[in-house]
């Protein structure tokens, strides 16, 4: 049985094709492309990806308008049923704006757009997304964002750390994120939001192939489920 992975495209998404290519590379099956205005998702989805970009031109707040689009109601419902949802960059912003993940992503502390390869430490290697890494492993993945400065109040940060929900941390400060958080999980562990772009680190020719294990482990877990 082939897996059914979907990539949601909003007006202004620009990493949707890269995301679809990454999913196909590890699953062997083309990803289903879903348009934001669709009120329903294709049936029996195994995996949903929210790609990077600048949905709705970042109007109001990054991810704010996309998170209220018709298809997101279906994504929230699917996440509630346990379908794995991965949000990268703008996808992470959409996940926090939709309430699927806590906190918010603010303008980078130094105000500049940051586009470079960064080091990440795998803080939780137990999730469907991170099981392909060793606990504490350091990996190299590119970031490209203006608003990746993760903010949550101290009680929320303590809870995220205490429950092992910090998936990735920057190995050195990048954008002003509280506690250098680069990616977090929801409490059930089936929703991951992260600012770095694993889909841009799929093979050595990209400069790093460290992102591949994320997709490979998720797909493998689903196949074996």
């Amino acid at each position: 049985m082939s897996l059914r992975c979907a990539v949601i495209t909003f007006p202004g998404s620009n990493c949707d094709r890269d995301m679809a290519v990454a999913l196909e590379a590890v699953s062997g099956t083309p990803a289903i492309r879903v348009w934001h205005g669709d009120a329903t998702l294709p049936e029996r989805l195994d995996f949903i990806a929210l790609p990077g970009g600048f949905s709705y031109g970042d109007y109001l707040r990054c991810g704010a308008i996309a998170s209220r689009s018709p298809v997101m109601r279906a994504v929230i419902e699917a996440a509630g049923r346990g379908v794995p949802v991965l949000g990268v960059c703008n996808g992470f912003q959409v996940l926090t704006e939709s309430g699927l993940l806590p906190g918010a992503l603010m303008r980078n502390a130094a105000q500049n757009f940051i586009c470079r390869t960064v080091g990440l430490k795998v803080e939780n290697s137990q999730s469907i997304f991170t099981g392909g890494y060793a606990q504490g492993q350091e990996i190299v993945i590119p970031v490209a964002h203006h608003d990746g400065n993760y903010f949550a109040d101290d009680a929320t940060l303590d809870r995220l750390e205490g429950e092992g929900r910090v998936a990735f941390r920057y190995t050195s400060p990048v954008n002003g994120s509280q506690r250098d958080i680069a990616g977090i999980l929801n409490d059930a562990g089936n929703v991951l939001g992260m600012m770095p772009h694993p889909e841009r680190a799929m093979e050595d020719a990209h400069g790093s192939a460290d992102g591949r294990a994320l997709f490979a482990n998720a797909i493998e877990s689903l196949v074996n489920a």
Partner: peptide, 9 residues
């Protein structure tokens, strides 16, 4: 609360 402001920040 639902759109214009993000109550987290």
């Amino acid at each position: 609360r639902k759109l214009l402001a993000n109550m987290v920040i």
